[in-house]
Design a protein around this nucleic acid. Sequence first.
RNA 1: GCCCGGGUGGUGAAAUUGGUAGACACAAGGGACUUAAAAUCCCUCGGCGCAAGCCAUACCGGUUCGAUUCCGGUUCCGGGCACCA
Length: 951
Amino acid sequence: MQEKYLPTEIEQAAQAYWNTSQTFRAAATADLTNSRPKYYCLSMFPYPSGKLHMGHVRNYTIGDVLSRYHRMKGYNVLQPMGWDAFGLPAENAAMQNKVPPAKWTWDNIAYMKKQLQSLGFALDWERELATCAPEYYKWNQWLFLRMLEKGIAYKKTQVVNWDPVDQTVLANEQVIEGRGWRTGAVVEKREIPGYYLAITQYADELLSALDTLPGWPERVKTMQANWIGKSTGVRFAFPYELPATGGTNLPSPSRGGIEGGDGVSTANNPSPSLALPLEGEGHVQSASGTEKGLLWVFTTRADTIMGVTFCAVAAEHPLATYAAQTNPQLAAFIDECKHGSVMEADMATMEKKGMPTGIFVDHPLTGEKVEVWVGNYVLMSYGEGAVMAVPAHDERDFEFAKKYGLGIKQVIENAGLRGELAKALLDGRLTEKGKQELEASYTNTAFTTNHWQQWYGDKANGVCVNSGKYDGLGLEAAVTAIAADLKAKDLGDTQVQYRLRDWGVSRQRYWGCPIPLIHCDACGTVPVPDEQLPVKLPEDCVPDGSGNPLAKRADFVDCACPQCGKPAKRETDTMDTFVDSSWYYARYCVDPTTRAANSAMVDAGTNHWMPADQYIGGIEHAILHLLYSRFWTKVMRDITVDGKRLVNYDEPFANLLTQGMVLNHIFSRRTDKGGIEYFAPEEVDLKRDEGGHVIGATSKADGQPVDYGGVGTMSKSKRNGVDPQSLIDEFGADTARFFMMFASPPEQTLEWSDSGVEGAYRFLRRVWAFGHAEQPAIAARAAMPAKLPEPLAAVRREIHLLLKQANYDLGKFQFNTVASAAMKMLNSLEKIPAGNGRDAVVAECFGILLRILSPITPHICHALWIELGFGADILDAAWPEPLAEALVQDEEELVLQVNGKHRGNIRVKAGADRAAIEAAALAAEAAQKFMEGKPAKKVVVVPGRLVNIVV
RNA sequence: GCCCGGGUGGUGAAAUUGGUAGACACAAGGGACUUAAAAUCCCUCGGCGCAAGCCAUACCGGUUCGAUUCCGGUUCCGGGCACCA
């Protein structure tokens, strides 16, 4: 046995052993019936950006710890890995380096695979997959066609960021303060056709099924529920009458058309129903030369309907378009609204602007005239593209009304809050400061001196005022009454609405999965026949930033129509990369032989391994990726082939661990064209204040200042990722893994710093040194004496207590304290006294330490297990459990408090009853001193923990 | 702006979920060993105070015998906001 700890040697040997014995190869379909319970441990697959970063190390070490732990607990474990290989960064790299995205991606995969292997993860590489491989994305295409048949996939227009200079669609990330990142041109909103997946058809199930996921973090379920945003409200209409136009120049709704009629619109995303030309919405040309129409809106607060003072519609709304025909100023304003970003965060924070249309509609209940405004904050894609405005009680409407001098009418009052405040003040229990606090909390409002908005927010206590017959009604009663009255007039009804919108999957990009459709002049849009799948993406394109390179490839575009055989054009849009990542986990499960034949998307292996027993990945995926995966799963469940469902489970991930982000400093500088250039942390010199906080930085290259952007997620685009390779090269994989797990609990955000790596390395050296020094003692395999001398019993008890704690912490995924327990074990063992049974205690306890540590630092534990003769493979050893005989003790120590303050400790017999503890406490010297002769009013006893004397 | 988290020593963090605040480490300082360095080992290490003790878990309040933990408010930081993945 080597005296020195040599990580490189140890790690290479261990990895070679795992490779040759195929230790981590999961059982194939034929063996799936073996009696061990399955444990499918899944980590979110990486985007092959070039190198691993610390977030990957964190993510995959967590997965590996869980995999190895469950394997030792007797589970049949599957832990696969793959590559989320399509995406924008490959195209950016192509523009920069003139290398095809395919080559760049495959090279990155090869390098990152080596890095993963050098970290010793227990992965079944036989099941590796890359989403850019035709044999994988073939099934994206196949399932897309099934969705088209079922009406889950359909076509409508979508709003995109358009760079007028590069003539290309920009991702949100490529829009910097309203301008294109490469050209600096002001970005325009443009409506283009695209394909959507009707996730709203599953909105209800996606929401209610959250209750079937007890293994998911509460916060993720809350975020998903809020995202789906189910609300019951009232959809109602404001009737209006306009001068007749003959209907010819009245605008059509800008969306909702579904090509070929094989798609379906969804109940929850109705077409904008205002539009004059639509049938069944009250559009009637009357004899008097006017046309009647209905302006539909949706509200969750119909109780405030009597406070409506105006309506606001989106710039793309047909009424706006209609009014603009005769109003050049309005037309200019509508045009202005088309500039700028499509992002919700920008929409919500931009200055609210509007302009009157000159059109008045009738209030459906009072008949009063209500003016229609165009508002830049109203989105055509939400609800009806129009809203009622109640400035008295809605902050956004208030801001708008104040700015344009529109009416404000209070219709909600809250007696409850007023009463509560009065009661609290009269009660007298509040201090003067407390009173002020309470008052401030009721009066602190950013935009008005009254309480109207707060009364609106306090749904339990608001009542209607200034609302005629609805006066005095609470929220629910008022909504019910108002909805009934609207219904009686045939002008509205209650409706369930979702915030969730259908999933637009078309991308005007090259490096993605081609959408398998063909456009024929004679036959229209025709699906590519299944037997012609996959539609392969040419792999030698080098995008240049303008337009979609696929459209320029005649060899891709030109094809024969599958229906009539005449020349036709292939669809050049590709799919959103979220499609790729929505089902990769099901593909890992496919038996390798089935996969080689590639005649099916999934097989029996999928139903065996799925749902994944544990999914691990960054919290940034809490909504989109996880929701899309859940949706995709339900679609696969509902699609049948030969009368059989594709999969037989409802949810893809039984348990979810959301890893906290690994953050690092971000440095950037604006380019001449208005874009952003990022600097890696090693390229800048930091300026810090006295407290050590970063306040600025300069570029090492040119000495000029760069902007400090605070800390944020490690990412390729922000260039702030830290490559773990130097860490692995210098200290080894075990140190990197141990350090990462010890640094903080997995769900917590972690600001990157490598201070502490030395400590991890030092600890592993001590583990090795202890094993080396005690080799003879351990190899002797001495029997444990029936009665150990107390000093040795104490060490043994301590190790078993730590083991108990470590096992508890493992169940909570709290790996940092497991690592800490291992360190405490070694601290104890290093001080073990001599005595009868010492060698037996050392052997037993060090064996526990190695097994506890082995999921985190598998290489060193593998080597020591063999060197010290514990067994052939530590992975085959049973997981240690604390022994009752080792834990027994005669006395226990309790904390002694007087009036809640710690005043000392008392020792009592283990398991002493309350009376005995109380007596011992009152007799204690420290208690006597602080009770100052006063009698005990009350004695609180917490068995095994503390006793508190109240005087 | 909206939704979801988080804030504890110089630093990463712990506290068996209402019961000794700061375990275990890192950094720093002091010492031992050494010709020297590295490595290793020992000691100190939240603030104030000679001490008894007092103060202290972002800030302001509340509940409780007892609050890092529960409640109300504020503030700062992070994640998401539908074309980054």
